[in-house]
Amino acid sequence: MSNLTLDRRRFLQGSGGLLLGTLLFTSGPIALMAPSLSWALPMTTLDSDSGDKLLLMVRRTFPHDTMEDAVYAFPVKALDQKASTDPGVADTLRQGVAMLDQKAGGDWRKIDADKQFAILQDIQDTPFFALVRGNAVNTLYSNELAYLHFGYEGASFPKGGYLMRGFNDLSWLPNPPASASPDPFS
């Protein structure tokens, strides 16, 4: 028992912080697929507060009201990974988070959402904003949880494609004639 504690302490020494969350929408598409309602994201370089502040920044930049924090954790993880291999990125993120707090006059998480958005508009030409926005637009929308959120059905080949899964099930417009769109099973 004491050996285990020692090992864990040594392991935690060099690592970053931890992001924790609970799924809010318990009958939402993500909760229905998730193994549990709580989630955790260990980071290697960013500390917990910075990770938390960046998550909020990405949420304000790409606001989806019903999108779980768990999805926004993906861009934070990607930024953390970049920071772990590139000290320049780590510095930009650290200074950027400090700038958010400074413009908020304290902890930037504690001010109104409107004021948070206004700060982002203010800094949208900075390299820090470009780094976070550019990274987030690719990572936020490129993961299984985001696909569940949007109703996108993801990889198709393992399920045999859409030929039998509604590729032409739209019924609120008339069907085109066979000359334009032949029957798949004739």
Binding site: N168, P176, S181
Partner: peptide, 13 residues
């Protein structure tokens, strides 16, 4: 010809 999907139905109409 190939059969048209939902996106095509909208285009056609």
């Amino acid at each position: 010809g190939l059969p048209g999907n939902n996106n095509f139905k909208v285009l056609y109409n």
